[in-house]
Amino acid sequence: MDLASALQRHTNSSTKNTRASRQFFESGIVIYRNNAWHKLGDDSWQFLESLALSAIDNGRIDIAEGCLDHLTAGFPGSSRVQCLEGILKESRDGPEPALRFYQQVLEADPSNSTIWAREISVLRKLGKIDLAVDQLSKFADTFYTDVEAWLELADIYASQHQYTSALQSLSHVLVLTPQNPFYVLQAGETAYSAQDIPLAMKFFLMAIEMAGDDNDDATPPPPTGITMRAWYGVELSAARLEADPTLATSSPSKTRAPEHLPRLRKLARDVINSAQAGRQDVESEVSSRWLSR
């Protein structure tokens, strides 16, 4: 790739917020080798940062170090550069030295949220789950509006089979972003794992309602993506509630089981079937076998 087209590409791609490390690195390295990153103007620093990250992704520590040197010279003491330095340390020296680096930075500036978040992720990577949970709870308590912190906390709890705690974290996520059906679906799946079947079913139905289109007159189109997953969830929960009616009354969150259970189950089966109709692949076969279990 020649320099001109690489430059052209990066002036255009800098606005996109994607992380295609491989492609970014391949064109970015041309600019870097030619020392042409100044030509990107205001974006040049951001380009260096992105190049360093993509270089780390591609295992080219030498390039990342070069970028970091330029950035450190440009912004001495910047917390953003420090974060990049920490990521580089994680990749090059392993988690323990990086953790020491993060702790050192945090000692000087305890409220640096990016470094704090990285420290927590390293703690989790090192398997110090208790410490990570402890820190992450403090983090989420301080920076309450950080949705990703709550999601991460829910993920850690779920990985430890603490589904009730995970559900509590997810309830904060839902309060913070009530408009995101993906989180509702995740809450539903977590509630299912926590044996709160009525709640799970409600969440699945909410996810379907939120992700569906707003066109009221037409019959809804066959489900795709997360709605499909949510319909499977509805079918599964409805089947379990029908098989074991005590589940409906033993909900830990005292959620009332949905009414019209048979109708809902029938609807879920019909919707799933309609999505698989006319398809002759493994997925439809598995799906139909599952429905006739």
Partner: peptide, 17 residues
Amino acid sequence: WIGDDVETRILKRYGRL
């Protein structure tokens, strides 16, 4: 809670109620 009567809304939407 918006989930209170979500099942009736869904069923109505699909014409099953």
